[in-house]
Design a protein around this nucleic acid. Structure first.
Length: 579
RNA sequence: CGCGGGGUAGAGCAGUGGCAGCUCGUCAGGCUCAUAACCUGAAGGUCGUUGGUUCGAAUCCAACCCCCGCAACCA
């Protein structure tokens, strides 16, 4: 059932996990749960949602890790991709298309964009000196060169920064440079690269950001403006490497497109792939060219400038092809029919960092807890609930097992779960396994309606923690209502009043079920069964490749459960954690 | 003086000009339908520091202190 007569179009781009390892808790806190809650809400509301992402498969760290494990980079990527999908499935993270940067389609779209940017003069060639390791036959990114810090004499300063004195260094400043890959002294060699001319796009970016960033989170907006204020520098768009998407220009063999120039293009290529998958190759234009389609990018702190500066810059430069007949004919994207510009980000709800033991989690030195560890121990709903309840939306947060246990026992279990259970067991045992036929209490009705309104507004503004708190407030209200009305006393002498109480308590239960669907879909699915509501929507039907994900039976307007409906035998939705 | 965020009760946080709030924890009481869950009440704060603007400042301005993130392919 879908009563939304004016569906909105919502495009959601989720930052691409790097296919070198499993998903860890920082990823969950950063974006992978928030995006799913947001998407589920909009689908529930009856909006057309296209949420895409994929595995980011290229780059030096994958190459090095593969070498270390003595497998090919392709094998490593394949393994990681599979693990990521498994985690998504377990947690019920649902995409219209989750793909990877290894597809032919992605390569084609990347080449198309690269060449248009080049033709429009946003990519220029330049040569520079870079360290080269003769032993492993490879150019070295700055961080793979260590040496003596010219400021403090620390002998283990990195090419970009001295960890001891904090000085920001240029790699050529290092005294006695050594390669971290082979420990040999690298030599400076001349190399040629393309650079993305961000300086040239700066005025356009500046204007766009001033107009568009008003609704962004403060820290995202301010730091993005700060980068522009500080002046944008050209960024290398290619690298000396063999693993990746080759540069589509003669004489550039052996070089690939820099992974962050390339990976963000995945938001577009994954939408194109989705359209092909559903057999309507032009369908992606509904999301990328309809000016009313809002684009949300769910990412985490460290990637902010790629989504507020670099990706918009690429899109702006690329969109100049639409004013040029020659380019338009020459560089059509797969399935492209309309000569309209591509949409820019509407919001980039980036989260801050989740800290673990005082510092951020990192794949680099295995300072992390994997998503699977948490899932295996506590299941999908609590994992999801926790990372929304304690999301680092505006500042960093320390991950804490105490918070996790506390929020489970006090909020998910005692507040919501217990209310549902006391209501259902009461109705089941005292009212002959049915919903008692009672009268609405106006206060209850009003509270349900205003909670739907408030939660909806919060989610649409991507204030998910606040949305969840609002739901918990309804849970508080529900428990208080039950307590104040004391139906266990009425049942002995004033059964009509008890009937009304339970009727309203059941409505509150059902309201909580719908409100929580985006957050804890598994428990809500179970609750549907207890309430004897037909619910074929599979909470972890992940990666629907064909068509938009099937819409829910529910809507975001509360519909009452009629009296005398039969109930199923109550069961516990969420278990308390004993310490 | 690189850019940015944060500093509010024991802990975690909300609060952007009008009586300092929420959750947990602590203490006391109530209830017994419910997963020892639920409800009521109490204690607990110099809102980082100093100065300024204002009838009025946690909130606006200035200076300073402390914590954190951002340069690499770190979410």
């Amino acid at each position: 059932m879908n009563t939304n007569s004016h569906p909105e179009k919502i495009f959601i781009g989720v930052s691409w996990p790097y296919a070198s390892d499993k998903i860890h808790l920082g990823h969950l806190a950063g974006q992978y749960i928030a995006c799913d809650v947001f998407a589920r809400y909009h689908r529930l509301k009856g909006n057309d949602v296209l949420m895409v992402s994929g595995s980011d498969c290229h780059g030096t760290p994958i190459l090095l890790k593969a070498e270390k494990e003595n497998i090919s980079p392709e094998e490593l990527v394949k393994k990681s991709h599979k693990q990521i999908l498994e985690t998504y499935k377990n947690l019920g993270l649902l995409y219209e298309n989750y793909t990877s940067t290894m597809t032919e389609n992605h390569k084609e779209v990347v080449h198309n964009i690269f060449l248009v940017l080049k033709e429009r003069g946003y990519l220029y060639e330049s040569t520079s000196q870079q360290y080269y390791d003769m032993k492993v036959n490879r150019f070295l990114p700055d961080r793979y060169v260590i040496g003596t810090c010219p400021e403090c004499g620390n002998t283990n300063a990195r090419g970009d920064e001295c960890p001891k004195c904090g000085a920001y260094l240029s790699v050529e400043d290092l005294i006695n440079p050594r390669s971290t890959l082979s420990d040999v002294k690298p030599e400076l060699r001349e190399t040629r690269h393309f650079y993305l001319d961000l300086k040239k796009l700066e005025p356009k970016l500046d204007k766009w950001m001033k107009e568009s960033s008003k609704n962004w989170r403060k820290w995202v907006r301010e730091s993005s403006k700060g980068w522009i204020r500080g002046g944008l520098k050209p960024r290398a768009a290619t690298r000396d490497m063999k693993f990746g998407i080759e540069v589509p220009v003669d004489g550039w063999e052996g070089k690939v497109i820099y992974v962050w120039i390339e990976a963000v293009i995945g938001y577009l290529s994954a939408a194109i792939e989705w359209a092909q998958n559903i057999g309507e190759p032009s369908k992606w234009e509904d999301f990328w060219k309809d000016k009313d389609c809002k684009h949300f990018y769910f990412i985490a702190g460290g990637n902010t400038q790629f989504h507020t500066i670099i990706w918009p810059a690429e899109l702006m430069g690329y969109s100049e092809k639409y004013g040029d007949d020659t380019l338009w004919e020459k560089y059509k994207l797969p399935g492209e029919t309309k000569g309209e510009k591509l949409n820019l980000p509407f919001d980039v709800p980036s989260n801050k960092m989740l800290m673990y033991k005082g510092r951020k989690m990192s794949k680099g030195d295995s300072h992390m807890l994997t998503a699977d560890e948490l899932y295996e121990k506590y299941g999908a709903d609590l994992t999801r609930f926790f990372f929304i309840r304690f999301a680092p939306e505006n500042h960093d947060r320390e991950f804490s097992w105490d918070d996790l246990v506390s929020t489970n026992n006090h909020e998910l279990v005692a507040n919501i779960g217990n209310f549902v259970n006391r209501t259902l067991t009461f109705a089941y045992s005292k009212f002959n396994k049915t919903v008692p036929n009672g009268q609405w209490d106006e206060g209850v009705k009003k509270n349900i309606d205003s909670t739907f309104k408030e939660v909806g507004e919060c989610i649409e503004e991507v204030k998910l923690t606040k949305a969840l708190q609002s739901i918990l407030k309804l849970g508080d209200f529900a428990n208080k209502y039950f307590n104040d009305r004391a139906p266990w006393i009425d049942i002995k002498g004033n059964k009509e009043r008890a009937k009304d109480t339970l009727f309203n308590a059941i409505q509150l239960t059902n309201a909580l079920r719908i409100l929580l669907r985006p957050f804890t879909p598994f428990g809500c699915k179970k609750l549907s069964e207890l309430l004897n509501i037909r619910d074929e929507y599979d909470a972890n039907d992940v990666l629907v490749q064909k068509g938009l994900v099937e819409k829910n039976i529910d809507t975001w307007v509360y519909e009452e459960i009629e009296g005398e409906k039969e109930l199923n035998k109550p069961e516990i939705l969420w278990e308390k954690i004993e310490i």
